[in-house]
């Protein structure tokens, strides 16, 4: 039901306090937003964490969500980066079943996407790829002809281009 809505990239600076994640999640859930991905990571200041959230929902509600996030005592700053000039990256580990005779083709695909193989057995391979979500989706799509066992995506992280802070 959420795929009809565009994905929004939001970055939040938040004080490292218990419950902060729940409070932030409640702002989204109360307004019917679905969180696609969520990355929480430390910053240069050990009292502060960074959250990158990709969420889908009614675009008109998004400004409200940002305002309500800003209102939370633990949130230092919340920003919508949806159509801004930002670098977006995601890292994916992909496990594919792969017989020796299929290896060459799979390695060619990896090569094209600048993906790395980080584990290889007689029958399987783990591929690591970083990049934009679109690039990763393209690789995943090409790998469909092989038997994909599982994949793990980190979720998107975002950084403003140029000198400005994210």
């Amino acid at each position: 039901m959420y795929s009809q809505f565009p994905a929004h990239s939001i970055s939040i600076l938040v004080s490292n306090k218990p419950g902060a994640l729940v409070r932030i999640a409640l702002v989204f859930s109360r307004r019917g937003y679905n969180i696609d991905s969520l990355v929480v990571s430390p910053t240069m200041d050990n009292t502060v964490s960074r959250m990158n959230i990709v969420a889908r929902g009614n675009p008109e509600t998004l400004a409200q969500i940002i305002q309500q996030l800003e209102k939370l005592v633990d949130v230092i700053r919340a920003k919508d980066h949806t159509r801004q000039d930002v670098v977006e990256k995601e890292l994916v580990l992909l496990k594919v079943k792969c017989k020796p005779e299929e290896r060459t083709e799979l390695l060619q695909i990896c090569n094209h996407f600048r993906a790395q193989t980080i584990d290889m057995t007689e029958t399987s391979m783990i591929i690591q790829i970083t990049g934009s979500s679109e690039k990763i989706d393209a690789l995943l799509s090409l790998c469909k002809k092989f038997e994909v066992v599982e994949f793990v995506r980190t979720g998107k992280i975002i950084m403003m281009r140029g000198e400005n802070k994210t």
Partner: peptide, 8 residues
């Protein structure tokens, strides 16, 4: 006084 009231 509440900035989140803008446009709510």
């Amino acid at each position: 006084i509440d900035p989140a009231e803008y446009g709510k």
